[in-house]
Design a binder for these strands. Sequence first.
DNA 1: GCAAAACGGCACCGACCGGTACCGTTTTCG
DNA 2: CGAAAACGGTACCGGTCGGTGCCGTTTTGC
Lengths: 188, 188
Amino acid sequence: MPVKARDRLLATAEELFYAEGIRAVGIERILAESGVGRASLYRHFPSKDDLVVAVLEARDRRWRAWLAERVEALGGGPSAVFDALAERFARNDFRGCAFINTMVESADPDGSAHRVAADHKERVVAYLEQLLTAARVSEPDLLAREFALLVDGAIVTALRERTPAPAVRARRIAQALLAADGAGAGNG
Amino acid sequence: MPVKARDRLLATAEELFYAEGIRAVGIERILAESGVGRASLYRHFPSKDDLVVAVLEARDRRWRAWLAERVEALGGGPSAVFDALAERFARNDFRGCAFINTMVESADPDGSAHRVAADHKERVVAYLEQLLTAARVSEPDLLAREFALLVDGAIVTALRERTPAPAVRARRIAQALLAADGAGAGNG
DNA sequence: GCAAAACGGCACCGACCGGTACCGTTTTCG
DNA sequence: CGAAAACGGTACCGGTCGGTGCCGTTTTGC
């Protein structure tokens, strides 16, 4: 557990929010499990919503860094993304995508939490496009959106099936798309 | 608005749950907007959870009937599923899939609401397999799971992009899969 | 070493949560 | 027509929600 109160709050809140949902976890729980005093929380985060945003922003940075690192380690190709996902799905504390979950839970699209979550997804799409550009596909922007759809589909399916199988399923589809792109444009 | 208290409760609860989330909507709201008395609610549904389950079961039946009807009207082929989805995504009250949302919101996989939601998805997969079998693909069970992944991916993406575009994106992928199946097995 | 900042503990706030009990009225149906 | 069931309204319950204010203690940094 981190030393500073702020860091302990972020770590505890992230864990609880992800495991049980944002609405389901009260301030009381976060205070109890982090050992931080009530006043200290509100000194760092004026409201629960500010805490939520801070948690999501930190998770966004960490998650994308993790993905880039794993993709690199797994060969660097676009479909390595799904091998990385398979690792995530296998973890027994896997509970889907924190950002999808946030957009589902906080329905208002104009809410700050919802927007942070939507921003995360766009950054992931941008990363996928960069990956596909490096792989020299003919239409990286189109394919990036299709890959993103596969990623989210795999995550949601894994949440429901509770096995890593959806990752390999999505990977198979992704490679079919890459093959079709290669056949159509003559590269690969 | 339906006449009987029970039906009004189900209609009001379904609308509010879908629009704002299950946890976000209190019993008070449902009573106020349905015009039903407090005692009447608890006469029909012993707890909020029972109400949630009843709402989801009704929605499951209605949703699958709607899908089958639209697919039939749109040609009856497997990829008509995505044309049906596009209609759904275009509605301005679209807020994703009520069952995915339920599984996200009620984290506990053993909870009744979560199980009803999971059951719904399996019934959809079964329907897809039936559709693909009729279309004489070589591996209907494998393809059904892939189609289901595309469906959920499209729904989640539509929730985030707030346009019907993900439906046509998923449709394109689906047809690539059908084409690959036809090429590999020599049917189509 | 000392001032200032960061901290944990506690009491308290109004509002709302899901749920119970009892009331008198309306509707249904034999 | 009359009994029984279904109903809407209200007061109330304990518990929890997010948030504020004040206290004395610990830690930090000059």
